[in-house]
Write a protein that binds this DNA or RNA. Structure first.
Lengths: 351, 351
DNA sequence: AGCAAAATTTAAAACGTTTGCAATTTCGAA
DNA sequence: TTCGAAATTGCAAACGTTTTAAATTTTGCT
């Protein structure tokens, strides 16, 4: 078994070369004789030498890490978003030899403070931020700081440009409306959340725009709002829609979790999906395939998006492009069995 | 807006103190006058000073990171394991100010090589390894290297002790058998995988032990095996169990994904769960709650386990306990609607 | 053989922090 | 006052690497 070589100094000594030469040889500099480069590479491989990250980072100013702040959420992690996102980032990063660092923000701790810490400590060369809020201090901070970042999601309007990748929720919601309209639906319901996330507005606006495009005054839209994290309130909101004197024939939910609640409540109150009610979600979470009769939804392909975000960020770090990079991904309709033609006769909700 | 203070040197200069004093003051050393400590803390806070991680790591030998190697899996990430695991680790780490680094192993790249790189580069003070294989070179490497680690899962037998946390799959499978036996089932099916993971043996052995404990010769167990990653083969294996001349009245699946396949295939071939067939899974993935009629399974509470793993690892790093830490978590039965009394009359499979 | 240019190697500084040891200041008692 | 001890602060080395600038060796020509 080979002697444990931990440092460049030891490796250099064992080769009878200077630290400088070994360092350069390993980095593949042309100025080092080919024969020497090979000899060094061979010795390093055999000794299992790996350069110390801290030392390299300290002198080069590059850590080779990309940061992601992980907000601790409630006890029920109901989707695979994080897993897919992280996997996608990993895939994107590994191609360039970069790694991911995940800094956790404790529940009471502002996410901004953790982000700041990651940036100021030099742990990462760039960061990814997700779940963009209407007024997002992270964006302002990173922008002021001039620190490389890519946002997953967008601001509604901003007086500055930045790098982002977003799924085109507006387009998806327009598509959902058009499809349902063509199936004869005229009375729509929208289940949405009260949290100030921008994706909510983007999707709602896309729906409103699609409605406006039709110019059909008989189209009606009822909106029910609840907190994202309060399951009880969500169920209540859904039932406000379902139990009114006149009930929508089609409900579009801001995301699958809400759509699944709609389907559960519909079933509980004796409605059959899609005969009595069409439901469309967004995200294509795993459960949407299993929840009967199968939820029609949009696939945002989180993993693929994350991979592209990683690519974008590495490009930004390496090349500092003058123009910001932006990318709008059109989500794909996943047509399952939760939507269908509008019912002919308006049935009242069963008592 | 305060001048940007990036280094200790600048902060010290602005305070008229030496670097040493400021460093010690920030570290809270008693030998520095309280008044000075307060003055320094105030200035640091106001300037937003954060110590450079690379420099600190280099000199102290501690990075404050815990590593996890992320194997890239197939295109379909069907569960929320990674997300929950990472969230749990984050929760456990944040309490001690540690962060997580995720190193991705490209598909063709051996996970061991990536692990080695993480360890040898000094990026992490300890690592977590998951999905323990029957013969696991990672364990041997870390052990030889004397590097702090915690395994999520166990070897079947080993000639050395190490730190691990595992869910007691053997107990769960015994419990599942006992419950089904008491419901009158005598003919069992087991759907398992061909991959050499230890958890497979632990669970199967638990089942075998429970069967042996009953000492009832009328108990019969059919086993179907398929690759974890080949959906077609999995479906075939399930159907071998379902379509035989005499079919089990209860099927236990190694994990939920297989159990869901059983339920799908049962429904497809006209069997009603749980009237004709009881099905029990393991993991309690999200979809198991939605897949009709609701899968009875065991909840391994990945998130909680991960949090404990983080705690264990930080303890190991800080205190280097002489005895290895081990922890066996008993998974909780999640009783849904996929199991019931054994059918009275043996129905043949419908043609 | 001798010399300039090219090729190859090296010494030393720098990155920003922690820390052993020494220097300085403060303070109470003689 | 003055002295010694205690309290407080500072110098300088060290961590392991990259990189600038300079030194050394080799090569090609005459």
């Amino acid at each position: 078994m080979p002697a444990r070589v931990t440092t460049l100094k030891e490796l250099a000594a064992s080769l009878g070369l200077s630290i400088t030469t070994v360092s350069r040889a390993l980095a593949g500099h042309q100025q080092i004789a080919l024969k020497t480069r090979e000899r060094v590479a061979q010795a390093a491989r055999q000794a299992g030498y790996v350069a110390n990250t801290a030392a390299r980072t300290l002198v080069s100013g590059r850590s080779g890490f990309v940061g992601l702040v992980l907000p601790i959420r409630g006890p029920h992690l109901v989707d695979s978003f994080l897993g897919e996102f992280v996997t996608g980032l990993g895939e994107g990063l590994v191609a360039h030899g970069a790694d991911l660092i995940l800094a956790t923000a404790a529940q009471d701790q502002a996410e901004l403070a953790v982000l700041r810490h990651v940036v100021e400590s030099g742990r990462a060369d760039g960061v990814v931020i997700t779940r963009i809020a209407e007024v997002d201090e992270r964006l302002a901070y990173l922008r002021n700081r001039g620190f490389p970042f890519v946002a997953h999601g967008r601001l509604l309007d901003s007086d500055f440009a930045y790098n982002w990748l977003d799924t085109d929720g507006a387009h998806a919601f327009g598509e959902a409306f058009d499809m349902l309209y063509d199936l004869g639906h005229r009375h729509f319901g929208l289940v949405t959340i009260s949290e100030p996330m921008t994706f909510r507005h983007l999707r709602q606006d896309g729906l409103a725009a699609a409605i406006a495009r039709r110019g059909d005054p008989s189209v009606r839209l009822d909106v029910a709002t609840a907190s994202r994290f309060d399951r009880g309130a969500r169920i209540q909101a859904v039932n406000r829609l379902l139990q009114g004197p006149s009930r929508p024939t089609a409900i579009i939910a801001l995301f699958d979790e809400l759509a699944l609640t709609v389907m559960e409540e519909a079933a509980r109150t004796g409605l059959t999906v899609p005969r009595d009610l069409s439901v469309i979600g967004f995200d294509n979470v795993l459960a949407s395939a299993y929840a009967p009769p199968g939820l029609t939804t949009f696939d945002a392909s989180i993993r693929q998006c994350a991979r592209e975000i990683a690519d974008m960020l590495l490009t930004i770090i390496a090349e500092k492009p003058a123009e910001p990079l932006t990318r709008l991904i059109r989500p794909a309709l996943v047509s399952r069995a939760s939507h269908g033609p509008a019912p002919r006769t308006r049935k009242m909700t069963p008592a």
